[in-house]
Computed example of a mutant assay.
Amino acid sequence: MSGGRLDGRVALVTGGGSGLGRATSLRLARGGAHVVVADVDGEKAEKVVAEVQGAGGRAAPLQLDVSDSAAVDAAIGGLVDQHGAAFDCLVNNAGTDRGASLLDLSDEQWRFVNGVNVDGPLFTSRAFLRRVVDAGERDVPADIVNVISISAITVGTDAAAYNSSKAAVAKLTEILQREAHEYRWPVRVHGLMPSAMNTPMMEQWNLSDEVMMDPDTVASAIEFMVALPADTFVQNLVINSRREPGWPR
């Protein structure tokens, strides 16, 4: 894997051990990036790294709980120390879901989902931005991609914690985009809202494979975002499947 449009770049993909994170790690590596595959499950991260390396790409595993602010700050700082300005891409993909109606939703479920889905992107983006801003001017901007969800703008039953958390990430993304513009930070912040994908997290909902998207399709959108010309960014992109009920075949 060489000669790609992401050559020379180092990208951190959270939740990289499965699903969309795995697909994104493989995609970015094929594009020439060195990918740091971060996951709370270190073994899953190592397996994806082995896949990337087996295909000729460059990658390294990182066991990381994105809901742990101190751990996130240490990890981001370590990557800056190791790679310097080449570490210029953060994909906030880590996410979780604990399906329950409001009456059955426990405090632990609410805090856990919001800890991963909301605190995680805040902690990683903040730590990353602090290093990028402190480093000063750049020839090309760094990139943050927040994987939100179409659930931020739709409502379903038994998903109060997940829907609410993704709505919060959507607003956080807007704030990051606004502050990056106002303060002239050398970074672009992209928002992505995919519908249901065929990933392990979706197994609890028992959806048919036929109505879910291939994670690689969504990963291709992430690759597109970070490879855009320096003077453009994706404010928010919704990706939906035409195979969902009601869509023409």
Rank of each mutant, 00 (worst) to 15 (best):
R188Q: 12
E43D: 15
R178F: 13
M193K: 08
G42C: 11
R130I: 08
H181W: 14
K47Y: 03
D41H: 12
G57M: 05
Y183M: 07
N198I: 01
A170T: 01
A160P: 01
I175W: 07
G17W: 05
R126D: 01
G17T: 12
M193Y: 06
G19H: 10
R242G: 10
V66Q: 04
Y162A: 09
D134F: 11
R242N: 06
K171T: 14
Y183Q: 15
R138Q: 15
V133P: 07
V132L: 02
L62T: 05
R188D: 03
I175E: 06
A11Y: 00
V238R: 12
M201V: 12
D97T: 02
N236W: 00
M202T: 13
M1H: 04
V118I: 15
D97G: 02
A71C: 05
V72I: 07
A159T: 15
A75G: 11
G31F: 05
M213V: 09
F123N: 13
V118D: 05
V48W: 12
A180D: 01
L237M: 14
L62C: 04
A55V: 00
M225P: 10
V49W: 08
T154S: 13
V169F: 02
W110I: 14
G32E: 07
S125T: 08
A59P: 06
I222E: 01
P245S: 06
G246N: 05
A60Q: 13
Q109S: 15
L228K: 09
D104K: 06
A230H: 04
K166D: 13
A170Y: 14
A159R: 15
E51A: 05
N236M: 14
Y183R: 15
S67P: 10
G42V: 10
D97M: 11
T24N: 02
M212W: 10
L122S: 02
A196F: 08
K166G: 11
V145I: 04
A152T: 09
V36H: 01
S67Q: 11
L20Q: 06
R5F: 03
A100R: 12
W185S: 04
A11Q: 03
P61H: 03
V80D: 06
T157E: 14
A196W: 11
P141G: 07
E51G: 00
M225I: 13
S2I: 07
R5C: 07
S101N: 09
S25L: 12
Q109H: 12
A45M: 10
Q53L: 12
M193P: 00
H190Q: 04
A11G: 07
N93P: 10
V234C: 15
S151K: 03
G31W: 03
L20V: 05
H83V: 13
T173N: 08
F224H: 14
G4Y: 02
A180C: 03
Y162E: 10
G120C: 08
V147R: 01
A170Q: 11
R242S: 09
A60R: 11
D68S: 11
F233K: 01
V155K: 09
M202K: 07
V80K: 04
H34M: 07
D73P: 00
V132P: 04
D216G: 04
L20S: 06
R27K: 14
S106E: 08
N114L: 15
I222G: 02
M201Q: 14
N163Q: 13
H34R: 13
P121I: 01
S106R: 07
V52M: 03
G54S: 08
G56P: 08
L172A: 07
G191T: 08
